[in-house]
């Protein structure tokens, strides 16, 4: 595959291919020396127009374990702040001989715009409220491995997954919903109307604002991060009310099924959406998501760049 920009253009076959590759990468990561020469000599540039140390480090770890050369384009010191157009920036960096850009931007669509201006592959590390495909892939990988399911097109079939919180402003929710439903899961989103996207009836999900009505009846509870700046936009009255209605507290946690997974894309807002310590939960897989993130991003980098020597990684 040339690019990984969004879940829809990856398709269910692509998702399954990445999940299978991720199993290999998990095995690589367990080795005493977790490094393979799969991408020796390939230059990867992480182009983070929006700060995200966690995602950037996850990608950089993945690239290094595949022996790629990874450069970081630091926006704060770049010409982006000097009136250069996005196109100029991409064409300039591209001219240095780049195999792939890992792009993070606060605005939806930038990975698609960027791909018009370079021959390099584009990997979307999060664009606006739109897509965060590697997050969705690592979430799928986490769920199916935790449940011991093989990487197949219906590996999430029969599952009901609750996504709780600010769906409107969440690229994680958009990509997860597409990936989970593509693999056969049913999704229920739980949020007040103000934090739901417009025309949510066109989404392939159930909708409710009553978390208590679903906690006891789902296989996964996926808590989204609640950003404090939403308060100033009158989207919720205050954080206390939000926590009361949509936070995972002890009472709700006690009603979860024994095997129900609890997930969060990080960073967590303790005391807002997470009122319990994940360590106290039977099946919190939040740190597993982070470690799986490296394996899944290795799989994505290999899928995008490693097609010339596929045997090296295995």
């Amino acid at each position: 595959m040339k690019h990984l920009r969004g879940i829809p253009e990856l398709g269910v076959e692509g998702i399954v291919r990445i999940l299978n590759l991720a199993d290999h990468m998990v095995e690589v990561n367990r080795r005493p020396v977790p490094k393979v020469p799969a991408l020796v000599g390939r230059t990867v540039v992480s182009l983070f127009f929006e700060d995200s140390t966690r995602t950037r480090i996850s990608f950089e770890t993945a690239a290094k374990r595949l022996s790629a050369d990874i450069m970081t384009f630091s926006v704060s010191t770049s010409s982006v702040n000097k009136g250069e157009s996005l196109r100029d920036t991409i064409e300039t960096v591209s001219a240095m001989g780049v195999a792939a850009f890992i792009v993070r931007h606060k605005t939806s669509g930038v990975p698609w715009q960027v791909s018009q201006w370079t021959d390099a592959s584009i990997i979307n590390a999060g664009d606006g409220w739109h897509q965060h495909p590697t997050q969705a892939l690592l979430d799928c990988h986490t769920i199916r491995t935790e449940l011991g399911r093989p990487a197949t097109e219906d590996c999430l079939a029969g599952l009901r997954i609750a996504i709780v919180g600010d769906v409107r402003h969440s690229r994680v929710a958009r990509s997860d919903i597409q990936a989970f439903t593509a693999l056969g899961a049913r999704v229920v989103v739980v949020a007040p109307r103000t934090l739901l996207p417009p025309e949510v009836h066109t989404w392939p999900v159930e909708v409710t604002s009553d978390l208590d009505s679903v906690v006891a009846d789902v296989d996964v509870v996926y808590m989204l991060r609640m950003q404090r700046e939403r308060m100033s936009e009158a989207l919720v009255p205050d954080l206390g009310e939000y926590s009361n209605r949509f936070g995972l507290d002890h009472a709700r946690a006690a009603r979860l099924r024994d095997e129900c997974l609890v997930m969060h894309p990080g960073p967590m807002n303790r005391g807002v959406e997470m009122l319990v310590d994940p360590a106290d939960l039977r099946r919190s897989v939040v740190t597993r998501q982070v470690s799986n993130g490296v394996a899944v991003r290795m799989a994505v980098l290999f899928d995008v760049l490693g097609d010339t020597n596929p045997e090296v990684a295995s």
């Binding site: 939806s108 669509g109 739109h130 897509q131 690229r171 958009r174 417009p198 025309e199 066109t202």
Partner: peptide
């Protein structure tokens, strides 16, 4: 706002102009 607020903007994750 970047585009019309409707189902398309909802899927694209762009701020809507209602």
């Amino acid at each position: 706002a970047v585009m019309h607020e409707g189902s398309c903007c909802s899927h694209l994750g762009l701020p809507g102009w209602p």
